[in-house]
């Protein structure tokens, strides 16, 4: 049976269910027990935003606070995964990934390949992504393109609590390293989530809105902005399809291409910077594989090529808005009218 659950508590519930099901699942991270490491409500905060709250009380020493050294504990998690555990390590903010590039890119992502397919590394690295939290330039980045670039990593970025639970359970059960990106501005967002365990397979996009006139391809927080844009456009008679990629690696190219073949118009929306982004990736792929279906030049909506501003006014302008997305959709349609 289902009930409303927040994005944040869906993370908590997925971790709890998998820890209960499989004794090899362990949690590691900075302050994820919290406080003095006591099971008491006051002391065990469960991480910087309380995502792992209650798990120490239930699962004890399988929830581990680590020193403030990303290279040490991410490395330890990857090593434990190679030796038979299923660690879920919390990187707190994905902005800190630079401290453990070698462990993630050179070790975890390469073990299966370097050891002739004999090594498996079932590690999950959870990290908060995205702007809008007034957390400034070093805690607000959308580094999904950087991790998506690396073969050997799977990259997940859910937009809602239902997907969070099913994709995190799949991430833990998966035998490869998974970078699980959680948008901090969606933590309070609630949808219906079943009580039971379930796994959503990787590489299957969702289509939260079907439409005939144009295709928006996006993920994460931008799914909500795009749906908002689609609602506005519907009132003006433009029927937009919205694709939520859910996983960036593997990517559900079939769903993207099928949709563009139907609508003939593409708008790729990404909260990352424009260069070498998920948006540029999608646009290039569609141009290469569905060029004849396109009725107009694809549009990209991204954040600017600048650090995330700390000024609230500037930060709000930095993040693509529903208005900007709707404007880009109209651009794909007006081009058509001019051409006709």
């Amino acid at each position: 049976m289902a009930r409303k659950l927040s994005y944040k508590m869906a993370v908590n519930e997925a971790l709890d269910l998998e820890m209960t099901r499989d004794p090899t699942v362990i949690l590691m991270g900075e302050d994820i027990v919290g406080g003095a490491g006591s099971p008491g409500e006051d002391d065990a905060w469960g991480g910087v935003l309380g995502v792992t709250k209650g798990l120490f009380a239930k699962h004890g020493a399988r929830v581990m606070d680590t020193p403030l050294s990303e290279s040490a504990y991410i490395g330890a998690a990857i090593g434990a995964a190679a030796c038979g555990m299923r660690p879920v390590a919390e990187l707190m903010f994905i902005d800190f990934i630079g401290c453990c590039f070698d462990e993630i890119f050179n070790q975890a992502a390469k073990f299966r390949y370097m050891f002739g397919g004999k090594a498996e590394t079932p590690v999950v690295i959870r990290a908060m992504i995205g702007a809008g939290y007034r957390a400034a330039a070093q805690h607000s980045q959308m580094l999904t393109p950087i991790v998506t670039h690396i073969p050997g990593l799977k990259v997940v970025c859910p937009s809602n609590a239902y997907d969070v639970k099913g994709l995190l359970i799949q991430s833990i059960r998966d035998n490869d390293p998974v970078i699980f990106c959680e948008h901090k501005n969606l933590y309070a967002h609630e949808v219906d989530v079943p009580l039971e365990s379930y796994a959503i397979p990787f590489g299957e996009a969702a289509i939260p809105r079907e439409g005939r006139d144009a295709t928006i391809v996006t993920y994460g927080l931008m799914v909500h902005r795009s749906l908002e844009a689609a609602e506005k456009l519907a009132r003006e008679g433009v029927d937009v399809e919205v694709i939520d990629l859910r996983t960036l690696s593997p990517m559900d190219w079939d769903t993207v291409i099928e949709s563009v073949e139907k609508t003939g118009r593409l708008i790729a929306v990404d909260e990352a910077h424009p260069r070498c982004s998920i948006a540029s990736d999608i646009t290039a792929f569609v141009a290469q594989h569905a060029f004849r279906a396109l009725k107009s030049a694809p549009q990209m909506v991204t954040a600017p090529h600048s650090p995330v501003p700390f000024s609230p006014t500037l930060e709000d302008i930095y993040i693509p808005s529903a208005e900007t997305i709707a404007g880009a959709v109209k651009k794909t349609i007006i081009q058509k009218m001019v051409a006709a």
């Binding site: 239902y162 099913g166 079943p194 039971e196 365990s197 379930y198 796994a199 959503i200 969702a206």
Partner: peptide, 12 residues
């Protein structure tokens, strides 16, 4: 289809 997939993906 999506509703049925949600059901089919439940453990068990």
């Amino acid at each position: 289809i999506d509703d049925l997939l949600k059901y089919k993906r439940l453990d068990g």
